[in-house]
Amino acid sequence: MSPELLDSILEGRRSQPHQLIEVLHDVQEHYGYISEDAMKTISNDLGVPLIEIYGVASFYKAFSLKPRGKNVITMCTGTACHVRGAKPLLNQATSQLGVQPGETTQDGLFTIEKVNCLGACAFGPIVTENGDYHHDMSPGKLRKLIKSLHPTRTEETSHD
């Protein structure tokens, strides 16, 4: 983690406690997660008690406290996607990758996330892979998508 980047994120926001969430968004965007060290620096520079930063960072879904996988597979579980069959998709992802939503595979390649509605309900179920939208998904398409992201990866199929 380069301190210069964090420095530039904090630039112009120092001693402004209300900027906390915006700062955390930027840190999340640039580093992929929010580390303890980052929180300590932010606490110092914004003048917000560490416990509050920890509380905020753990409250909002947008922030993750652990590094995320290289590929983030986000499953829309909004109402419209749910009625159109988001559940089998989630089952596909979790059984193909062997991790639950919010978790990252051991090799650090994949993270599965859930999101409530991405605003593209008409084309559901929707899955995004690192921010790219895939519409009208089926378990088969998702399987190929995940494979295509890392063809050499051996599948850790879970049988429970």
Binding site: E36, L50, I51, E52, I53, Y54, G55, S58, F59
Partner: peptide
């Protein structure tokens, strides 16, 4: 300010930082 609420909903708990 040694302890606070952490997490949300059913994960909500009282903890010191980290």
């Amino acid at each position: 300010k040694a302890i606070g609420f952490v997490g949300r909903g059913k994960d909500r708990r009282v903890e010191p930082p980290f």
